[in-house]
Measured scan of single mutants.
Amino acid sequence: TETVELHKLKLAELKQECLARGLETKGIKQDLIHRLQAYLEEHAE
């Protein structure tokens, strides 16, 4: 999932992505995007 794609997701979809990775789901859309980006960078293959 790339940065551009995360911005296209709806808030509910971002929350699902966070939940699937065991991440916090509180906060505004930008918080969730930032959290997912950090996770994806950390776990990049």
Results as ranks from 00 to 15, higher is better:
23 L>R: 00
14 L>I: 07
18 C>K: 00
27 G>E: 01
38 A>V: 10
30 Q>N: 15
12 A>W: 09
35 R>P: 03
34 H>T: 14
28 I>S: 15
19 L>I: 09
40 L>G: 12
11 L>I: 10
13 E>N: 03
39 Y>R: 07
36 L>G: 03
18 C>E: 00
9 L>C: 03
36 L>Y: 02
43 H>D: 09
26 K>R: 11
28 I>M: 13
11 L>W: 09
20 A>R: 12
43 H>Y: 05
45 E>A: 12
1 T>R: 10
13 E>C: 05
40 L>C: 06
21 R>A: 04
17 E>Y: 06
33 I>S: 04
39 Y>S: 09
4 V>W: 15
15 K>V: 06
1 T>K: 15
33 I>Y: 05
6 L>W: 12
29 K>P: 05
40 L>E: 15
10 K>D: 15
23 L>P: 00
24 E>V: 06
13 E>D: 07
29 K>C: 03
24 E>K: 06
23 L>M: 05
42 E>F: 10
16 Q>F: 02
30 Q>R: 11
5 E>S: 10
45 E>R: 11
1 T>L: 13
4 V>N: 09
20 A>D: 07
42 E>V: 12
23 L>K: 00
25 T>A: 10
33 I>K: 06
8 K>D: 08
23 L>S: 01
45 E>D: 09
10 K>E: 13
13 E>K: 07
12 A>Q: 09
33 I>C: 09
34 H>V: 12
12 A>I: 09
1 T>V: 12
6 L>C: 05
44 A>T: 14
28 I>K: 15
38 A>E: 12
21 R>G: 00
45 E>I: 06
5 E>H: 09
21 R>V: 04
15 K>W: 02
42 E>T: 13
39 Y>C: 08
28 I>C: 15
13 E>F: 02
15 K>S: 03
37 Q>R: 11
29 K>D: 02
11 L>C: 07
7 H>W: 06
32 L>M: 03
10 K>Q: 13
2 E>P: 09
42 E>G: 11
22 G>M: 01
32 L>N: 05
2 E>N: 15
19 L>K: 12
27 G>A: 01
22 G>K: 02
7 H>F: 07
27 G>R: 00
16 Q>T: 07
6 L>G: 03
33 I>Q: 07
40 L>H: 15
11 L>G: 02
34 H>N: 12
40 L>M: 14
19 L>N: 08
43 H>L: 03
22 G>S: 05
3 T>F: 11
4 V>A: 11
36 L>M: 09
25 T>Q: 04
18 C>G: 00
12 A>S: 13
29 K>M: 05
25 T>R: 01
26 K>W: 13
37 Q>D: 15
38 A>S: 11
42 E>S: 12
2 E>H: 09
11 L>T: 12
9 L>R: 07
32 L>S: 04
38 A>H: 15
3 T>Y: 05
10 K>M: 06
38 A>C: 09
32 L>D: 03
28 I>P: 15
22 G>C: 03
14 L>S: 00
27 G>V: 00
4 V>C: 14
45 E>Y: 02
6 L>I: 04
10 K>L: 05
43 H>W: 03
15 K>H: 04
23 L>W: 00
2 E>I: 11
33 I>M: 07
25 T>V: 11
6 L>H: 04
13 E>V: 07
21 R>W: 02
1 T>H: 01
40 L>T: 12
18 C>V: 01
22 G>V: 00
39 Y>F: 04
37 Q>Y: 05
24 E>L: 06
